[in-house]
């Protein structure tokens, strides 16, 4: 299943998207304008539904964030003004958490990008059992995050019986207490393991959309494999990599399960989503948690806007 979708999907995308864009922009005839209006009308219900579903909860969250509301002290519920936002800034929990998120997500994205690229290049070659290898490599992405975290905690990183420490003992390295000594790394391991297949899939799609003529021409011109990869394949993959990085970052920012299962937020692994969970469900401070949520959304919007802008720049540069 995955094999066909990977092979078929990306090839015609860039060209057709470019064509529709030019048509609507350069041809403002009345007929076309009514068509545009009609298509907008069709889109409207979906658009409104999207606004209702995504924006109303956000407005409610903003309302909550202005409340002084502890679930266990219902009589003390009152309007708090910006007290919760002041608490977010003065508690000293937000910046370390933001930094932990950047470190964990950034580290995992870079690692899974490198590994994903490596695996994609390997899978791009034709060999017997390629479909089986591809399915096997995709499996980690299909495992539920909680199950993956449990597997890493008990089977791989356990200090007495874990496979990783057993392998390390072959080269004479003592057992490593992963969760105690390197909590950030344990989370990065788990995330990288989960998201490498995702990176690999997108990059593989990029590799397979590369035109064989170009590669052949490079070969005829006497470029060796490394040169071809460096000067032809990598630039071609750039847009795919950007997309994969963006999607992976968005997915990983929500990381919760490994933190909850493996480190419980100790040792600079308290990511923003875990911090939110703690404020809401352990602290029972609904107002404060909502304020953290609002600030997180603002930060994410800023980051996403910057990232998207660069991404589109890359896209336009790519098509020129």
């Amino acid at each position: 299943m995955s094999a066909t979708s990977v092979d078929a999907a990306p090839a015609p995308r860039g060209s057709s998207a470019g064509r529709t864009a030019t048509v609507s922009r350069t041809d403002p005839s009345p007929q076309n304008r009514s068509l545009t209006r009609f298509s907008r009308a069709i889109v409207m219900p979906g658009f409104i539904a999207a606004i209702v579903i995504t924006q109303i909860p956000f407005l409610v969250t903003i309302y909550y964030s202005l409340q002084n509301w502890n679930l266990a002290r219902p009589e003390a519920r009152s309007f708090a003004g910006f007290d919760n936002y002041i608490a977010v800034v003065t508690n000293g929990a937000f910046l370390p958490s933001l930094w932990a998120t950047v470190l964990i997500v950034g580290g995992s994205v870079i690692l899974s990008l490198v590994l994903g690229l490596f695996l994609a290049v390997l899978l791009d070659r034709k060999f017997r059992g390629r479909a089986v290898a591809r399915t096997l490599l995709i499996t980690p992405f299909l495992v539920m995050p909680a199950a993956a975290a449990l597997m890493w905690k008990y089977s791989l990183l356990e200090v007495n019986t874990g496979i990783v420490n057993w392998v390390l003992s072959w080269v004479g390295l003592g057992p490593v207490a992963w969760n105690t000594e390197y909590p950030t790394l344990t989370i990065i391991f788990t995330l990288t393991w989960q998201y490498t297949p995702f990176m690999m899939l997108i990059l593989l799609a990029g590799l397979q959309s590369q035109s064989p003529e170009v590669l052949e021409a490079a070969d005829v011109d006497g470029a060796n494999a490394l040169q071809t990869f460096r000067h032809m394949t990598l630039p071609h993959l750039r847009t795919y990599a950007e997309l994969a990085v963006l999607l992976c970052t968005v997915l990983m920012i929500q990381v919760f399960d490994p933190v909850n299962i493996m480190t419980k937020g100790a040792g600079n692994t308290k990511t923003l989503s875990y911090l939110l969970y703690e404020r809401a469900f352990i602290g029972q401070q609904i107002g404060e948690a909502a304020a953290y949520g609002v600030v997180t959304v603002l930060v994410t919007i800023v980051v996403a806007t910057l990232a998207l802008r660069t991404l589109f720049k890359v896209f336009t540069e790519g098509t020129d």
Binding site: V159, N160, P175, A177, N179, T180, E181, M262, A266, G267
Partner: peptide
Amino acid sequence: AQAGERDPVS
């Protein structure tokens, strides 16, 4: 540290 389990945080 002296006589406890390794990897105590787990």
